[in-house]
Nucleic acid binder design. Structure first.
Lengths: 251, 251
DNA sequence: GAGTGGTCTAGACCACGAC
DNA sequence: TCGTGGTCTAGACCACTCA
């Protein structure tokens, strides 16, 4: 009696083999037919696993040829997405630290209510966290939550990982996010909380985050000192016929 | 005798209906069974079409409930990806102009040969283009190509769209790209070519672009004046178990 | 329990690449 | 021509949501 999904087990197995170097980069994966007999599965199930490999930058499928091993993870792990600072920090070799600078409910007249609680029925709380990397305070994260979806937790939870709290303790599933990256001027708050170190601008990531039922539950601003900001992204060219997949956008 | 793929026609039709407002945002799409009888197709084909809608931010699927219409296109079209300036400009209401500042082969000792032509067998050419938006020169694009894959075209082609040349005239397919976004100091060249307008930093997008056969054919640096840079991104939370999908990255 | 999407199967034909 | 991946079908069972 297996709980796990077959195509995920196949995916996991293939990832492990690719990372172990069973096949060289730019070599071919076995064909879909070979894989389906090897894993005792239908071709469609293999294709589900291969789709995952492709989405995550492990292979490139070529019609009539096969699946080529690529290495989108070479330079320094990649891909735009939704990730917590904790997940991120675990992949860094540098020492990191989080300082909870504030944690409180907001006044009802705060602008953020328009976004997170239009009827102002639910309370909204805020947490501000300073991220220290190699003993420099370089990131200021300002998170706003609707109390109805995410009850205000303790400082300890904020110190650890709010996403673990949301996905683990509360059992909610984060589905998607809309993000905007811009460069803004340094604020007084930046100067108070961070080591701005003479910089006059900050890179700001503004995110609207949604649950699986499409309700908006979080708004975040992550303010980065520009010399410590770097975003690595792996992008596939999808159909751009109707709704061009965009990149730098200009106002 | 139809050339077009069935699931793409269904996708196109559903996009048209969503954009026409046939269903309200946060309403449910008809169920997969209803859609398959409506379009005279199997459920798997419908699911292919719905997967595309989901990837492109039109719907959010919820197990046991249905497909909810969402609106990732609300603010200003979205999503990180691979797009040409021409595609981008067509979605802008502002007047834009491209100036080809230079177009030439590079000396064999240029650093870029290490990336694009390791054996230094093939020639590498470069084009520099200044992008003017609302009569301000705010973007400097520096593109490097391997002559073997992409023969150096005329200035007119660069003026128009190199991607149209590659995908249309040469019939090649761009498959994926690896990008890095960082903030760098203004260079003398920036000052010479652009209206830097007192800014001391530039947002720089560095891209390695690959063809379908996974060969690297282009390296690009796109340098943006920070006040005119904005990136909008729509991200889904995928499996982050093995290879965390990252966001801001730090050095 | 009825209806939804998620997984999986076995089979078919097509479009493409390489020989 | 052969093997590859791409599309499509018809049907099955499971997991989930909601009344």
């Amino acid at each position: 009696m297996e709980m796990t999904k077959k195509y995920l087990k196949i995916y996991d197995d293939l990832v492990k083999k690719i990372q172990a170097g069973v096949w060289q980069v730019s070599a071919m994966l076995p064909s879909e037919n070979e894989l389906s007999s090897h894993y005792n599965s239908s071709r469609e199930t293999i294709r589900n696993a291969l789709d995952l490999l492709s989405q995550n930058g492990f292979i490139q499928k070529v019609h009539g040829k096969g699946s080529i091993i690529i290495d989108a993870h070479k330079l320094s792990l990649p891909v735009s997405g939704i990730v917590s600072f904790k997940e991120l920090a675990e992949n860094l070799q540098l020492s990191t630290q989080t300082i909870v600078a504030s944690l409180n409910y907001l006044e009802k007249d705060h602008d953020i209510y328009k976004i997170l609680s239009p009827a102002a029925k639910d309370r909204v709380w805020q947490v501000e966290r300073v991220r220290e990397i190699a003993n420099e305070k370089v990131i200021l994260d300002k998170d706003f939550f609707n109390d109805k979806h995410i009850p205000k937790p303790s400082v300890d939870v904020c110190q650890d990982s709010i996403y673990d709290y949301i996905e683990g303790e509360l059992g909610l599933t984060i589905a998607f996010a809309q993000k905007e990256i811009v460069v803004e001027e340094v604020t007084e708050e930046d100067q108070m909380r961070l080591d701005v170190d003479g910089f006059t601008n900050m890179v700001v990531i503004k995110s609207h985050v949604y649950l699986e039922d499409t309700s908006l539950f979080q708004y975040t601003e992550s303010r980065h000192r520009p010399d410590k900001f770097r975003l690595v992204d792996f992008a596939r060219r999808l159909d751009t016929r109707h709704h061009p997949v965009h990149e730098p956008f200009l106002t």
